[in-house]
């Protein structure tokens, strides 16, 4: 199914932002919020994993319901998971399209990667503290 991805701050993201190797941060940053009706159509329940793809990349996240979102829109807090999907084009403004990335979402059984694993995909070397 196709969606428009929005990103932004959340309290839980802000609270764990200085512990990016922690499971708490990983949990918050890899949560994709979705209208419950969309979840029903996608046949996923809270906590189920989904593969989210955009032109820029793809990443596995987990789903949580948010009735405040209109259908067809999903929300992920700002962070490395969302940014695995956001393209680097800035249209001459310096600012990527953080608020409007077209994505497709499908259920998956694959695991949600850790932040360190995501960075390894980008060419980094994980540091475990």
């Amino acid at each position: 199914m196709n969606f428009l991805l929005n990103t932004g701050r959340t309290i839980a993201q802000g609270s764990t932002v200085e512990r990016k190797n922690s499971t708490k941060y990983c949990e918050e940053a890899s949560a994709v919020s979705m209208n419950p009706v969309d979840m029903f159509e996608l046949m996923v329940e809270q906590g189920d994993r989904v593969r989210v793809k955009s032109r820029a990349g793809e990443v596995v996240m987990w789903v949580r319901p948010d009735p405040g979102l209109v259908r067809g829109k999903v929300f992920v807090c700002l962070g490395p998971y969302a940014n695995h999907l956001v393209g680097p084009e800035t249209h001459g403004t310096g600012m990527p399209d953080f608020k409007s990335t077209p994505v497709s979402i499908e259920p998956t059984d694959d695991p949600v990667p850790s932040v360190a694993m995501l960075m390894r995909e980008c060419g980094g070397v994980p540091y475990e503290d």
Binding site: V17, P80, N83, V86, P88, P96, M119, C122, G124
Partner: peptide
């Protein structure tokens, strides 16, 4: 700051290079 987390993936890839 943390561009690895807050920049698009393509930027993070260049930071790693």
């Amino acid at each position: 700051s943390d561009p690895g987390a807050h920049f698009p993936r393509a930027c993070a890839e260049h930071l790693a290079r």
